[in-house]
Design a protein around this nucleic acid. Structure first.
Lengths: 224, 224
DNA sequence: AAGGGTGCTGAAGATCCGCTGAAGCAGTCT
DNA sequence: AGACTGCTTCAGCGGATCTTCAGCACCCTT
């Protein structure tokens, strides 16, 4: 799956690219509208993530231009919530979906998946760690076949851990992926949710699948 | 993928930038060492192509300076084959690969791809010294397949030794790498942690993998 | 063999880090 | 409006970890 990200905020673009690459997408990034249009025309992408506010040529114009030349690649618009640009306008120009900033990585990923699913059959793969099963599309978790009900945040945290099973994931990294980038809160929220996760999916089953690595982060592991 | 090219020969820089841009990279070009260092620190790149012979500040110094501040961006060095600068020196200062001039574009591109693959696909490589396995991403150590729990500091010290296996590493060097640069404490801390490491991963297994080299430092070795 | 230097290690204090219960808050549903 | 749910913040506890220190052991030199 090839994605094109057109986003002038380098930090954001980089973090999106890294996250999506890690999940198996092939990601190209450009930082201005004209270049984005050029690339979109030259290359074949499965989806384009397009920021509205761009130097030179804004996202709406890129989008319209693409549709004008008959390009049907799904477009996911990123809009700021300041009212200057609104959702309707984005959809009018031919975008398939939009996400307002600030957004969390998980939200964006979910929307991307939804758009891709619309085209191709089959969604995100199910992740299995020992007898723990994480179903991203169903937002459902099973321990030994038994369903465990999680809240949205809990699920997002678990999913991120599951995507990096057997590796240490820092609290900072979890914050960056699960919370929106504007979040400036205490890393303690992560601890609170980890605590909740353990209460639901480790303690009742006498497991220790979420391991604390002091000074480093957490590791979701099959053993334990 | 964002590349930074630091190259003073304008013709060459331009042609590389053109070629790489055409292949989907987003390329920035600067023409001297100091500016290159500045950009590399300010921005996030996926890879830096760095000429050795530069006006003002040569490539080795740029490379060393970047590594010194903890920047781990892959660096591909370009060296002239005139003997004044050699390959070993480039690698010593922390470059990931080097290409000698004159080189063909395809060779350079192949090297760039190889470096990018190394980073993106699967993280840090697992290190094996005899039956000792160090997994940087999982912050985990195995002796003969059996997991050994280490603290953060212990792991950091061991990892550093493992990265320089079979070589003598001085206490000063360990201090500089494992502790933050502001640390002004006693080098005895290193001894204390070495002691702890031996207690956990040598003594229980009757090994002597961490060898003291009096007056010089320590050596992690497969034999013993 | 003595002496100085270097390294080792057990213990203790200080510090840092993570966990968790509870309360406040915001959004949603009834 | 009121109740409910989930998210975040806060504060205190408990414990792991780091560092310092001091005495001992060992090695090399003289």
């Amino acid at each position: 799956m090839r994605l094109l990200i057109v986003e002038d905020e380098r930090r954001l673009a980089l973090s999106l690219a890294r996250g999506l690459t890690a999940e198996g997408f092939t990601v190209d990034v450009v930082h201005d509208g004209a270049e984005g249009l050029h690339r979109a025309v030259e290359e074949e992408y499965d989806l384009i993530v397009l920021d509205v506010m761009l130097p030179g040529m804004n996202g709406y114009r890129v989008c319209s231009a693409l549709r004008a030349v008959g390009d049907e690649t799904p477009i996911l618009m990123l809009t700021a919530k300041d009212g200057e640009y609104d959702e309707a306008e984005g959809l009018d120009t031919g975008a398939d979906d939009y996400v307002t900033k600030p957004f969390s990585y998980v939200v964006l990923r979910a929307r991307i998946r939804a758009l891709l699913r619309r085209r191709t059959r089959g969604g995100a793969p199910v992740i299995t760690i020992g007898d723990l099963t994480v179903e991203p599309d169903a937002q459902r978790v099973l321990r030994a076949g038994e369903e465990i009900v999680l809240t949205a945040r809990e699920f997002a945290v678990l999913e991120h851990l599951a995507l990096h099973a057997e590796q240490v994931v820092s609290k900072r990294e979890i914050l960056e992926h699960v919370w929106d980038s504007a979040y400036r809160g205490d890393p303690n929220v992560v601890e609170v949710h980890i605590s909740a996760l353990r209460r639901k999916l480790d303690i009742p089953y006498g497991r220790r699948s979420i391991v604390t690595v002091r000074g480093a982060g957490y590791r979701l592991t099959a053993g334990g």
